[in-house]
Design a protein around this nucleic acid. Structure first.
Length: 275
DNA sequence: AGAGATACCTGGGAGC
DNA sequence: TGCTCCCAGGTATCTC
């Protein structure tokens, strides 16, 4: 699944090949993913060169010279490819033919992706659709003091708050589970009960888990559709996620599974006391 | 208003 | 073997 490190990798690849190129033909093959795809047929997206590709949270923004932009979220199975024209694959929903003869192809098996045209308030600006997103976890703004203040009034479970995009973006179920284990914090405890001292354990834990995932090659969890056969290395480093019923790698206690906010959480009852 | 639940979707795995 | 059922994931939207 594309996590924040993968999105960053895709952004860099698109930044290298898309600026200066324009679309000359847009084809859609599916009525909708998370949103209807018909708006992509807007002629304003064609015959205008791409000027920039950037990332915010897990969203990609591909900006055209006319202030229009493609706002993209890969959901959990989205794949972007820029390739020479070829036969369409089963789950390719959008294909944009480019002025340089290549094709921009958007594939998504589970159709959890978002792909919508937007108009930017100004060149280089963030789409209004993304207003309200929290801080980037790898930025300087993500500090223990920020987390402490953001969670202070929260009455939901700590793990649910950590996964809340209004607080910090890009921390999904896998990373939240791992970071809480690393910080020795119980996922179900009240978010508002987090102390400054605990926040100063949580913030570096989130950063470290994300950075380790990037170092491991950006692939966090093996996909059921291995294309090139290489498996991400990060899965081997998982200490909590997916390990319910197995012994804790720190103390040997049996790891426990609990459902929080509709998502499975795994924790060690000894290393992550509820307190 | 804030928090919890649910819908969206497909393929893989478990169980029969 | 083949069927059904459940689960995973992030986000928008609904309900309480």
């Amino acid at each position: 699944m594309p996590e924040l490190p993968e999105i960053e990798t895709i952004k860099r690849a698109l930044s290298a090949c898309m600026p200066g190129v324009s679309g000359v033909k847009m084809e859609i093959f599916t009525p909708k993913m998370r949103t209807p795809l018909a708006p992509l047929l807007d002629p304003g997206l064609l015959h205008t060169p791409v000027v920039d590709v950037r990332r915010r949270a897990r969203y990609l923004i591909m900006e055209f010279a006319n202030r229009r932009a493609l706002l993209m979220h890969l959901g959990m199975s989205g794949v972007i490819r820029v390739e020479a024209p070829r036969e369409r694959r089963k789950h390719e929903h959008v294909i944009m033919t480019l002025s340089n003869g290549m094709t921009f192809r958007f594939e998504c098996t589970r159709r959890f992706s978002i792909l919508i045209p937007v108009t930017l308030p100004a060149p280089g600006a963030e789409p209004l659709e993304l207003a309200g997103l929290g801080v980037e976890p790898l930025s300087d703004a993500f500090t223990p003091e920020y987390v402490y203040r953001a969670l202070r009034e929260r009455k939901n479970p700590l793990k649910v708050a950590v996964m809340d995009n209004a607080i910090v973006v890009g921390v999904g179920n896998i990373y939240a589970t791992e970071a809480l284990f690393q910080a020795g914090l119980h996922p179900a405890r009240l978010a508002g009960s987090l102390t400054r001292k605990e926040a100063s354990r949580l913030v570096p834990a989130i950063r470290e888990v994300l950075n380790r995932a990037i170092e491991a090659g950006g692939t966090t969890f093996h996909d059921y559709r291995q294309i090139d056969g290489t498996e991400g290395m990060f899965e081997q480093e998982l200490l909590a996620y997916g390990r319910a019923g197995q012994p804790c790698r720190h103390c040997g206690s049996i790891m426990v599974s609990v459902k929080l906010g509709g998502r499975t959480s795994v924790y060690c009852p000894k290393c992550q006391p509820l307190r």
